[in-house]
Design a protein around this nucleic acid. Structure first.
Lengths: 333, 333
DNA sequence: CGACGCCATCGAACCGGTTCGATGGAGCGC
DNA sequence: GCGCTCCATCGAACCGGTTCGATGGCGTCG
């Protein structure tokens, strides 16, 4: 392994000049730089990361803290998001690091070490649960960060879909196809994304006097959608359009309707969200809302890098919204 | 940020003694260690990673090089695998780093930098395509590594399912349920996993004289299973049992059979592989083979750590096999 | 009582880069 | 010809740990 001292010796210059030359400092003469670069090429020189970090203070890596991998989020969404993160980080010259804490206590511990041991220059916080203290920690430390999937808190940058609009667009799509009695199969009422989607749904329903819209909240496994839906129908409510906040919820609903003898989309139109891989494999194929997870990842990194460049406490503030698109398939009529 | 010199000063010892005390060297007296540890606690001391790496030569991180995220592998499989990697790495005191090269050229470049700049102590190579030179590079460099999803090459450790047995077990399951005319919807014939699975399938078929087994290879998107299946039926072959090497392939086949008026499982029994999330959402629910991706991840790390501890060139050799289980659901009869 | 050995601790070098202040030579104006 | 500035380069300090060889105090043994 060649070190910078080897390069300096071979190029016939001092170590400091070699370093300046390799970092394209304009103080070194063109011809000197040339000699240094040639020597570096000849010896296949690569500066050791840890040494660079120690002296410069920058790690050139970004950490992803994600308690939810394989848990409450769809895998397809996660992998697309991860690719977005990765690509944007790489474009900025950064490497990606990853932790999957199993509970809040562990998340806080990891975050604390992350900051104290200076593993990375910034952190992406994925879906922190609503009551954890991870956020306070990171804000208090003035450590560069960006948050995913939650409403902004003062001083915290976040990147998210416009959940109000996502739900409203999906709802309007069903209304446009003539559906009048709608139901939203929503997530837990405690989560802000669910609150936002309920709002968008109800606003879209309220815009047309002929339309009635109701909301049920389900939590835990997607299977919980089936009894919730059954209760709705048993209560005698009319139903010809169904919006689900995730594709698994939509698919469970689809099965439940089928078992009650209701046809999709003839009797009830359905649209889900996330545009998971599995939408293509249902019968009928499931309409969904593409949330552009890849862009979410890219935007998160861009926001974070802005904050890093600004020195931590400021930069990339506020909430970035990522676009979404309806993906119309058979289930929506 | 407290440094080790602050600790030493507060504890009234030299820097070297402080370092030895914190690293539990038994040369330091119990009482001195106590003082140092107390000082460290009081100042909330955390050794900076880069400094530790620079002087000790160990990064305490493992890199995952995975060209396939979101591509030819199922997302659920990937996330479970990743969790396994993560958990085992964490248990060993290591952190996880990640790259997603877009093509072979980039993979080689990343790997080269990884080794030269010493980012990590070892690398997990996921599904390297059969013709790349990544393997040669890593073997030549004597860099600790472990490979996933491919037959072992001399000097390369690998972790994998026993693909011959996976296919044989799935096949025997259908035979046990009375199926006699079987078809394997296989991956590209160039991939070793596909070769192994074909072998297992044919061996299981050959064990019973009443059973006939045929294989079709498909590549690219899972949709390609439909025409392949149609061609098989059009050729006049009998068919009452179908083994697919992935769940998407199985689901596409299921739809294709349905469109030809064949019932599952009455006319044709189906079993897939990977036990993806989506198996629960098909109609009928899809039987599958659980490949224990989490264990695959854990074993990969364990093998890698053995190699790291052995100094790179040796340790954790050969091929580790991970168990699998049949998950019986409606589609297999 | 002196020599020896052991134990705990220390100082200094080292890992491989970056950066800052100093140095020396060339070019310029007066 | 002297002094000034500017430019290119250099030496040394520094980042924050680890590790090795040296040192000094103590108890033990002959």
């Amino acid at each position: 392994m060649a070190t910078i001292r080897d390069i300096a010796r071979r190029a016939g210059v001092s170590v400091s000049t070699a370093s300046l030359a390799l970092n394209e400092d304009r103080r070194v003469r063109q011809e000197t730089r040339r000699r240094v670069v040639d020597a570096a090429d000849a010896l296949d020189y690569h500066p050791m990361r840890a040494a660079r970090t120690l002296s410069s203070g920058r790690t050139w890596s970004i950490h992803l803290l994600d308690p939810a991998i394989g848990a409450n989020m769809s895998s397809g969404f996660f992998t697309r998001f991860l690719r977005g993160l990765h690509d944007a980080a790489r474009d900025g010259g950064y490497t990606l690091t990853l932790t999957v804490p199993h509970d809040e206590r562990e998340a806080r511990a990891v975050l604390k070490r992350l900051v104290a041991e200076r593993w990375s220059d910034g952190v992406v916080l994925m879906n922190p649960s609503d009551h954890d203290g991870v956020l306070e920690d990171v804000v208090a430390a003035g450590f560069p960060h960006v948050l995913l999937g939650r409403s902004p808190v003062p001083g915290v940058s976040s990147v998210d879909n416009d959940n109000v609009l996502v739900a409203a667009d999906a709802t309007r799509h069903l209304v446009d196809r003539g559906r009048r009695s709608l139901l939203l199969i929503n997530g837990p009422a405690s989560r802000t994304f669910a609150q936002d989607r309920a709002r968008g749904f109800l606003e879209a329903c309220g815009a047309d006097a002929r339309v009635t819209g109701r909301v049920v909240n389900v939590s835990g496994a997607p299977d919980a959608a089936a009894p919730a839906l059954a209760a709705h129908l048993d209560a005698g409510h009319a139903l010809d359009g169904l919006v689900a906040v995730s594709d698994p919820l939509a698919i469970v609903s689809l099965r439940a309707l089928h078992e009650r003898g209701l046809r999709v989309p003839e009797d009830v139109a359905i649209i889900g969200m996330n545009n998971d891989d599995l939408t293509q494999y249902t019968n009928p194929r499931l309409a969904s809302v593409e949330l552009n997870a890849y862009d979410l990842g890219r935007d998160a990194i861009e926001s974070l890098l802005a904050r890093i460049d600004a020195g931590g406490r400021t930069g990339g503030e506020g909430r970035r919204m990522v676009t979404h698109e309806l993906v119309i398939r058979e289930s929506s009529g």
